[in-house]
Design a protein around this nucleic acid. Sequence first.
DNA 1: CTGAAAGCGCTTACAG
DNA 2: CTGAAAGCGCTTACAG
Lengths: 337, 337
Amino acid sequence: MRKVTSSDVAARAGVSRTTVSYVLNRSERVNISEETRQRVLAAVDELGYIPNAAAQMLASQRSNGVGLVYPRSHPHLSTHIFLLSAIEGLKSVFDRYGMHLLLDAVDNNSEDAYIDLLAAQRIDGLILIDVPLNSFVSQRLIRNAFPVVTFGYQYPQLSSIDAENWLGAKIAVEHLLDLGHRRIACITNSPHFPGDPNLRLRGYHDALQQRGVPANPDWVVEGCYTPESGYTAMQTLLGLAELPTAVFVGSDVVAFGAMTAVHERGLSIPGDIAFVGFDDVPLARYAVPPLTTVRMPAVEMGIRAGMLLMERVLDGAAPTHITLPTELIVRSSSCAT
Amino acid sequence: MRKVTSSDVAARAGVSRTTVSYVLNRSERVNISEETRQRVLAAVDELGYIPNAAAQMLASQRSNGVGLVYPRSHPHLSTHIFLLSAIEGLKSVFDRYGMHLLLDAVDNNSEDAYIDLLAAQRIDGLILIDVPLNSFVSQRLIRNAFPVVTFGYQYPQLSSIDAENWLGAKIAVEHLLDLGHRRIACITNSPHFPGDPNLRLRGYHDALQQRGVPANPDWVVEGCYTPESGYTAMQTLLGLAELPTAVFVGSDVVAFGAMTAVHERGLSIPGDIAFVGFDDVPLARYAVPPLTTVRMPAVEMGIRAGMLLMERVLDGAAPTHITLPTELIVRSSSCAT
DNA sequence: CTGAAAGCGCTTACAG
DNA sequence: CTGAAAGCGCTTACAG
């Protein structure tokens, strides 16, 4: 049960290990006679030779690994659904290049353990999904010209990918305005913290402002990723003297909780209160009633992010920011059909 | 920006690289004077030394990597929610041992590409979530005594983890029987295929049989992972001359679709038709009405699977099967409260 | 308790 | 077009 090495292949093909390596790795740069090539390939096949990853990494100074970092802490369900779709896109690109994905969850307040992956040279690139970077770490990444693509946050000299959160939210709220609503509340997806751009909330405000509809601070309530938080936030809104007639919720998952609060109160959706969510999670159209929402192009974002990273790993391309369009999906939670 | 190596540490601490390696790796086996230890540790710290992973892998013949394989193909939403919870559990174990998780999605009909990870010695162990193993691959894994833990399928000489699917389903259906239902339908989570034990469906049948309630073949309809499939399956049931008064659905996600079909038909839940799902996905209690279901202990399964794998990697422990309990969560889709 | 040296299995200038 | 040889940065018997 001995492992087969490149020496075995070389012996069988009657060439040196050098030639085996050339045939396997750089068909373009070095000219190998077609006959030798075939002989080597045949030997590889017959022996079932797979190069030892560690030896390759050590000699070539490339790991063919990409670190994927995401937040561990909160029960960030929609982020997680998003995560798997993004991974699907990322993998479709990485598979073509023989890159492997290493998963690393981080706590919000952790020691950035993923940096060790980089220091150990276990990865050639980094994908950060919804994790903020402190300036110490980002400086280090920039200084080393280490390939990075971020989702959800944006940094000056690092590549990033995002969806049109601001525009998507603005269009969602304009949809409600077009339906005649003037008392429109907002439940955010996440609590506000310094440095958080919260583009969805800004889209909400800007839509109201552009249409000259006065904003009511009481009608903006914080959610925190979970349906539970949406339920609580909606109860706050339902306790107000003047009820909103529509609610824009920063994520579908939070909207599920908010809608439950409305049902329990005996009010009807969209008759008494209309709803628009954000994300288009797979269950959104099976909410009661089906939830109008803004679709995030998660798989596409993964694909583009993967390409961005590979261009940087392979060709040293410059850092680039890409923003992908979102799309309003109208269902019956905003207007009876 | 030169990488710091163990030579640098050795020089700084005034010892050999051997000693550096001993201090870092086998505190128990070799006795190093406390003073030397401290000197080495200080040098490591001051230099920010992180051992090169490739060199370590090559020299030690251990990769500290674990492959996590899951099915790519179908839009297996509840599997995916399950997947992330399982990963949470797995990582909590692997983090303690410095093991890294490599993600690999496979197509149902693919070439088992993950086997190359093993051949390249990039991983020391394998976790298979809901992917069946053909006998060629399983024989190879067994022959090499390669550490493997499977979820969802079980093989003679490989470790596996599972939940009480049969018992959970049986208890769910007994819950409906206890409520007085006799016309109980079942929508499965997945289409039947050869070799699929489908324990949830068996639990359904066995509950009926033990209570002497006749089974009606028309009342068993196949779902296929998605809410869409549940919607379609429910429409089939609603087209029958004699309607069931309760439905046991093999997964919550499928149940969401089925419940939507019932609402559209203008029937009430649980008044006209009661529902019980399976999985307890995070949105289950925000279904309308909140969905009675059977909870899968996903995180716990991940933890136990991780421990099973590590015992095998580290101590060569024998293959073991573990089954974890499920729990009925009663909400109002089965009985008005 | 500590060090010199071989070896892990590749890649890649450098010669020829 | 092909090969001999150095080197990647660790670990680990083996001596002492």
